[in-house]
Amino acid sequence: MKILVCLKQVPAKDAPLKLNQAATWIREDVSFETNEPDAFALEAALRLKEAHGGEVVALTLGPARAAQVLREALAKGADRAIHLDAGEAAAGAPPLDAFAIAEAVSRAIAGESYDLILTGLQSDDAGYGQTGVILAELLGAPHATIIMQVEPAGERRIKVKRELESGNFQFVEMPTPAVLTIQSGINKLRYATLMGIKQAKNKPLARMTLEEIGASAGLNRQLVHRLFVPSKSKGTTLISGSAKEQAAALVAHLRNDAHVI
């Protein structure tokens, strides 16, 4: 199987975030890491390759620093990588939205035939949950979301397990090529070994710029006008009175103010 894994570099989970001056995005003076669901997508791809053979290609779109997620993917066992270099965004320039990213990826991989394209079900930063789905549409391929398990099911077919609400699952057989968006936590992520890190240096890492494929923020269909930091409003109310009065006051509070009963 030839598998493409789309990985995004996002601000590290514990990075203390601040908004930029225009409050349209965060300030990017933080550490970055591989988007967590994407890391699980990579792991799923590597396991498919180990079990059934094939090739794993890692792809990311982002500035120069984003190549780090590719180096890590190569160190973990991806065979080659593609960096869609978005350059350094001008201050205040909007990040690409899900449509623009999907469009750029579809143009970058035109001419290559993948059996599977895996990506995380959403990014930890923008959280669109749309990029994989739109990419499937642009490629004219079927897709399935929130995938927990993938296995081959005969010639050009796979069987996938989807997570539904309240502990229910759906099993679907579908044709390939297909785009799957992978749920976090479905497997145990491997560590890059020292030998893997050393060998990664000699694996092919292709770079193309957005201009080269004719993509830009001009493709965006969505504009972030303003971000807000949620204001913390934690208050403690002490209810006094007899136990009976306290219970009544508490019920009234839960019903009328908190709206939970």
């Binding site: 145990k188 992520l189 491997r190 560590y191 070994t193 020292l194 030998m195």
Partner: peptide, 23 residues
């Protein structure tokens, strides 16, 4: 010797255990 990766709180290897390297 580098650090072992993927050792659980109980000191036992997890499924993604990677032993440290002897350099």
């Amino acid at each position: 010797r580098t650090d072992d990766k993927g050792v659980g709180r109980d000191g036992r290897p997890k499924s993604n255990f990677e032993p440290g390297y002897d350099l």
